[in-house]
Nucleic acid binder design. Structure first.
Length: 269
DNA sequence: AGGGCAACCCGGACGC
DNA sequence: TGCGTCCGGGTTGCCC
């Protein structure tokens, strides 16, 4: 569920907490969440310093001093919490990393994972991802170019990680609403103005979401007031029956490619 | 190429 | 309280 802005928020907050710190202990309660044996995982992660943290699409990368990388994907329902044992949430923890008396808890990892990889392996795994929508190299010209041969629906295209990386079910709807385009519209039916609005909306919605800390409900740590601030600022997602804040028409819920889709039937075309 | 769909996975919400 | 049931949803792979 976490998308680009949620992972970006996590990254920015975690850098201040654990960057440069040493992982003093490791607990793996769910072996399926990792890609090696528990003993091997612990051997290679324990006592390693986290030298840097980076984000790519919906992934978070924890660089270890050894050269290994912990590659995190929260998939559906995954979340993190950082705090002491007393502050720990009443949730099942799949993996925890210790930093002295503080812990980084990985919660809700069902299909989500924390894989231990070499730099080369990480590159391999991430190789098919499309451009980062907020990268300065992702210019309007680049967007128009990669969209040129797209004949699919807008929503389907936006969530395609090979087209653009980091956008998921929620932000695709928010972007379509902001650009005033129907999620089911075919990309190649959009005129120049529509394409320009779409490019602007992709950047604007994601930037706003990052500014307000994304939509994760659970703060990352005790006293974290940033995380989740965008949750109340979403215009259409999970707002079926609410009035559209642009035209007052009630928001419609539908289904597309077996995923939920929300839109305003009047001011999106 | 795009659309549809099954499989993956299991905690937590919900119903009785 | 407790047990059973079902949902969610990003990603991959396969088929049409």
């Amino acid at each position: 569920m976490p998308e680009l802005p949620e992972m970006e928020t996590y990254e920015n907050l975690l850098v201040r907490k654990i960057s440069g710190k040493t992982i003093t202990d490791v607990t793996v309660n769910r072996e399926k969440s990792i890609n090696t044996s528990v003993s091997d995982f612990i051997n290679r992660v324990k006592n390693q310093e986290i030298t840097a943290i980076d984000r790519r699409a919906k992934h978070l990368l924890f660089y270890l001093k050894s050269g290994d990388v912990l590659l995190l994907h929260l998939m559906l329902g995954g979340l993190m919490f950082y705090g002491t044992e007393e502050e720990k949430l009443d949730r099942t923890v799949q993996i925890q990393l210790s930093f002295g008396k503080h812990y980084l808890y990985f919660i809700g990892l069902r299909l989500g994972y924390l894989h231990l990889l070499s730099l080369g392996e990480v590159e391999q795994v991430l190789t098919d991802l499309g451009p980062e929508p907020l990268d300065e190299q992702f210019t309007r010209e680049v967007f128009l170019d990669v969209s040129k041969n797209k004949r699919g629906r807008l929503k389907t295209t936006l969530v395609d990680q090979e087209f653009l990386s980091g956008i998921g079910n929620r932000y695709s709807d928010e972007i379509a609403w902001h650009a005033q385009i129907m999620p089911a519209r075919k990309m190649n039916e959009l005129d120049e103005q529509g394409m320009n609005r779409l490019y602007d909306s992709i950047r604007f919605v994601l930037q706003q979401a990052i500014k307000y800390g994304g939509y994760m409900e659970q703060p990352l740590y005790h006293g974290d007031t940033l995380t989740g601030g965008y949750g109340t600022r979403m215009y259409v997602y999970d707002r079926e029956g609410d009035p559209c804040s642009r035209c007052g028409t009630l928001i419609t819920k539908g289904e597309m490619s077996s995923r939920k889709v929300f839109f305003c039937g009047k001011c999106q075309f």
